[in-house]
Design a protein around this nucleic acid. Structure first.
Length: 484
RNA sequence: GCGCCCUUCGUCUAUCGGUUAGGACGACAGCCUUUCACGUUGUAAAGACGGGUUCGACUCCCGUAGGGCGCACCA
């Protein structure tokens, strides 16, 4: 509709960056939304700006308070902080109405008296004739005086009919939408409530948003919204439409794959820092960098490096990253994460009850061995089970097999040696047991495995000497005695 | 149906006309080793297809195929 030069585009060089995350509260914070929020947050934070949060709750039928809470909780857990209070879009309806009428006054909008039934008929006919489905402009230039009585009109935006709207998108490049493909959208419903495209423009303008970063599913909306900005003679924010995230099979995310709320990822034992790292690398990159801190993300993140094509969600890679962060996290910090995680997982709350100061110290001591083997907090919790086990331990199948005749004999032999250990530390115990193995011509494995079985009830665990030390002399000897 | 967009190893991606097309996850193999892991070394693995433009195309243009998104008094 106008050449790029005539469009007033917000310039980030002079104004401080203001981004916003604007979810509609019709469900939880899903993974795509989480990434959008992450991008908005990282971009603002990296430019000394701020990210605002706006709840797009103009659809009163589908918006719920539960969803609002879930989204806020999800963002908090992700570590994405927004500036100030979350804005309720619905609460700003008066202002939206005001602008709708201003548009009317400016001649950029008009009353339309078509009933929903007529509109549906219009759509069906267009479909049957294989024509584009669009409002035909019946009331665009018609005298409102000829309006049928008793019909509450809607207000439609008077969209340009010729030319094109050009979106200069940071991710998508130059996108041209012909005006003929955009019909006159409803901006105010017959019940007097504003619709999305109007509300978004008014809110983004009023909130001083300089950069809009959202999913590509809004790309066409961007063109309509630009037309409203221009009709109001407002500055158009910088636009960035990021590609969508698909399921592992390439199809749209469904409940079967990852269309879960971030709280589900929390329950699966993923760390926020790992999720941030993973999500950042989905559709965005910084050379060959794969693992980077959130601080680095903030420093590096830029709109120009965002890709154009949709990406698939890969749980395996997320797990790898999560394992990396678990391994490299300081033990006390990891313990804090584990304790914070327990209330959110299966069997966690019950376990939490068993954790007193003494048990905490024990877990902390076992953590170096445990964290090498866990990709999620769930696995970490599971692998720590031997610490909580009550005597006599229940053996799993593999542990039972290890404690056959041969195993039990080996066990009895080493128990004698252990009983005489002067010093109950992993290093001392290891020297002792290795000497014992050598003396008896046994491979270490022949002794270590039965020990592991008797001590943990399983066939896999951290290094066996660490297990002995963590469990302590009395508990270790007790568990061993139960099996010989 | 109409419009807009996308297409590099299985996956996430680097490359911004000249590279042996790089990295990561995963896979496979070796090493390490008391189990499982970690770690480490190495191997296999990609420009959807067809035309152009160019001295030279993954990179630019056109077409084909496949995929995504949008087309509500939803957001």
């Amino acid at each position: 509709m106008s050449s790029p030069e005539s469009i007033r585009v917000s310039s980030s060089s002079t104004t401080p960056v203001v981004t916003r995350f604007a979810p509609s509260p019709t469900g939880f914070l899903h993974i795509g939304g989480a990434r959008t929020a992450l991008f908005n947050w990282a971009y603002a934070k990296g430019r000394g700006g701020k990210m605002l949060l706006r709840i797009e709750d103009t659809d009163r039928e589908r918006s719920t308070e539960v969803a609002v809470t879930a989204i806020l909780d999800g963002m908090t857990w992700m570590g994405l902080h927004w500036e100030g209070e979350a804005v309720s879009q619905h609460g700003r309806a008066d202002r939206h109405r005001e602008i709708a009428h201003e548009l009317l006054k400016r001649g950029n909008a008009y009353y339309c008296y078509c009933s929903p039934g007529e509109l549906t008929a219009m759509r069906e006919q267009a479909e049957a004739e294989k024509r584009p489905i669009r409002y035909d402009g019946t009331w665009r230039d018609r005298d409102p005086a000829s309006a049928p009585p008793g019909i509450a009109p809607v207000i439609r935006f008077r969209s340009p009919q010729t030319g094109e709207t050009v979106i200069h998108d940071n991710a998508q490049g130059r996108v041209v939408i012909p005006s003929k493909d955009l019909d006159d959208l409803i901006i105010l419903r017959s019940d007097g409530n504003p619709t999305y495209n109007l509300s978004v423009v008014v809110d983004d303008h009023d909130m001083g948003v300089t950069h809009i970063i959202r999913g590509v599913d809004h790309l066409t909306n961007a063109a309509r919204q630009m037309q409203i900005y221009m009709a109001m003679d407002w500055l158009v924010p910088s636009m960035t439409h990021v590609p969508l995230i698909n399921g592992p099979d390439g199809a749209k995310l469904s409940k079967r794959h990852g269309a879960l709320g971030v709280e589900a990822y929390r329950e699966m034992g993923y760390l926020p820092v790992a999720l941030r790292n993973y999500l950042a690398r989905l559709g965005w990159s910084h050379g060959d960098d794969e693992i980077f801190s959130t601080e680095q993300l903030v420093e590096w993140f830029d709109l120009g490096n965002i890709g154009k094509s949709a990406s698939r969600f890969d749980f395996v890679k997320l797990a790898n990253l999560n394992g990396h962060y678990i391994r490299h996290m300081p033990d006390d910090e990891l313990l804090a994460n584990l304790l914070a995680f327990l209330p959110h997982c299966d069997g966690g709350p019950a376990l939490l009850l068993q954790i007193d100061d003494e048990m905490q110290a024990k877990i902390l001591k076992a953590l170096p061995g445990l964290k090498e083997r866990a990709k999620t907090l769930v696995e970490l919790k599971t692998s720590a089970a031997y610490l909580f086990a009550k005597r006599p331990l229940t053996m799993n199948d593999k542990a039972r097999a290890l404690l056959d005749d041969e195993g039990t004999v080996a066990l009895a032999g080493v128990v004698q040696v252990l009983k005489s250990a002067p010093d109950w530390t992993a290093a001392a115990l290891e020297a002792l047991v290795k000497q014992h193995a050598e003396d008896n011509g046994l491979k270490l494995g022949k002794i270590a495995q039965p020990l592991r079985a008797a001590l943990t009830g399983t066939s896999t665990s951290p290094g066996i000497f660490d297990v002995l030390e963590v469990l302590g002399r009395d508990e270790s000897l007790g568990r061993l005695g139960d099996q010989v």
